[in-house]
Structures are given as C-alpha cells and as structure tokens.
Computed example of a mutant assay.
Amino acid sequence: MPLDGQLSTLNRVYKDKDAQDVLEHALNNFGDMALVSSFGAESVVLLHMAAQINPDVPVLFIDTEMLFAETLEYQRDVAAQLGLTDVRAIRAKRETLFEKDNENLLHLHDTDACCALRKTEPLQRALQGFDGWVSGRKRVQGGDRQALEYFEIERPLGRLPRAKVNPLAHWDRDDLQDYIKAHNLPRHPLVAKGYPSVGCSPCTTKVKTGEDARAGRWRDQSKTECGIHFGANGAVRAS
C-alpha cells in the first residue's frame, strides 16, 4: 500500500488512542525515525515520552545560533535528566552563513530567508536517511494546525515523501500541564518570565495576559511559522 494510504489507515485505527501509543507505533514501525525538538516551552512532554520508549532515539535539535542562552542550557539539562543518548545539534553550514548572513542581521529585513538559512535547510539536510520524523505540533496552536492528524505524509520539494507523526496533535494546554506536573518535568526557565512559546531571541517577545501563546513569535508580522513544516504548496510560513 502506498505511504499515504498507510497513514490514512493509521489515522482511523489510532483516532481514539493515547499519544504514547501513537509515538510508540511511530518509533517501532516506520524504520529509521528522528524526533525533531526545539527544546522549547512544551517540548519536554514529547521528549519524556520518547525517552520512556527508546532513550536512544535520534533527537534533532535545531541550533540557529540565535537561541536564548536559557534554551541552550535547558537542552543540556533535559537531555541529561531524561537519559537521551543521541541528541544532535543541527546548524547551518559555516560557509553558507558567511555567504548569506555574515553579520547575523538577515532577520532584521527578511525573517523567512533567515529561517530558511538557519532552520529549514539544516533540518532537511539532517533528515536525509530517515524514513520519517516526529513533531510536537498540536491542533490547539491554531492556523493550519487546527486540522492536524496523528499521521501525515510530507512531500518536501525535491525529496521523496516521508511520514511525519504528531503524537500530541489532539492535546490542549491543560493536557500538557497535567503531564508535566504528573511526571515532575523541568520547565523551560523563560516560561515563568512570560514566554509561553520560545524561539530565536531576536524574534521572540513576551506575551501579555489574554494573548495567544504564540503571539510573541514574529510579533507584528504575518509570519507565524518558521518553514520547517511542508504543506501542499511547500514550506509553511504563515497560517
């Protein structure tokens, strides 16, 4: 059966299953899988689930080299605490950065180009050789994510289709908070300082009471996605 047919069947079979069941199926039945994590505000939930199933799962951490210092420290602490043995820091090639953003100012006039340079291109390169990957996206995050399924097919331009799995697709913020509390998991230090969603330092601001959790990402721009996720028309950059 073609991959898209397999994934459609899995969405019917797993529609009432727990996130842990979805993740376990993905890690055990799709060949070589990677978990992609920002080690952001809610990332510890999926990382903890993965560590319970297989602490050796490859975890791809996109280090844009513009992250908050707190994120880098949190990444090291969480990986150690959960016993994750294969966390791979993914970065843009040095020569590419020198050519396209040698002064680290690209984000000031073209955020899409900056994300493509520091996130999308390095991740696509890192995913070569994997049969699919696991994402922490959720319907509650809004935009294109509102119709998110557990299992989906991704068709990156110029590359073979692959599976993408979203075990937390149906979770809301109460589910996340309950899981974190139940397992006594460490929170990203910036959450308590008003950052419910954490990205790169130059493009992330604090969120006011009553605002959407992602309102601080690329504030006052139409941009709402970094571009690492692919839809029917290519990289998704706005909902």
Rank of each mutant, 00 (worst) to 15 (best):
L3K: 14
T9Y: 13
K15N: 12
K17F: 08
V22T: 11
H25N: 10
A26Y: 02
A26S: 07
N28V: 03
N28K: 15
A34E: 03
S37Y: 04
S37C: 06
S37H: 02
S38G: 05
S38N: 03
G40A: 08
G40E: 02
A41E: 04
V45F: 07
A50T: 01
A51C: 01
N54F: 01
D56G: 10
D56P: 09
V57F: 08
V57H: 03
L60P: 03
I62Q: 00
I62R: 10
D63W: 00
T64R: 00
M66P: 09
A69N: 11
A69V: 10
T71W: 07
L72H: 06
Y74Q: 04
Q75H: 12
Q75M: 13
R76C: 04
R76P: 00
A80P: 02
L82A: 05
L82G: 06
G83L: 04
G83T: 06
T85E: 06
T85A: 11
A89R: 01
E95H: 13
L97V: 10
K100L: 14
D101C: 10
N102G: 13
N104A: 14
L105D: 11
C114G: 04
C115P: 11
A116T: 07
L117I: 00
R118Q: 03
K119S: 01
K119F: 01
P122R: 04
P122E: 03
A126K: 00
F130H: 12
G132R: 15
E152K: 07
E152I: 12
E154A: 15
E154G: 01
R155Y: 10
R155K: 14
P156I: 01
G158A: 07
R159H: 09
L160S: 12
P161N: 09
R162W: 08
N166V: 05
P167M: 01
L168F: 04
A169Y: 06
H170L: 13
L176D: 05
Y179C: 05
L185A: 00
H188K: 03
V191I: 07
K193G: 08
G194I: 09
P196N: 11
V198P: 07
V198N: 03
C203H: 02
T205G: 14
G210P: 00
G210Q: 12
G210N: 09
D220L: 13
Q221M: 13
S222E: 14
S222A: 11
E225Q: 06
G231H: 02
N233L: 09
A235E: 13
A235W: 01
R237L: 13
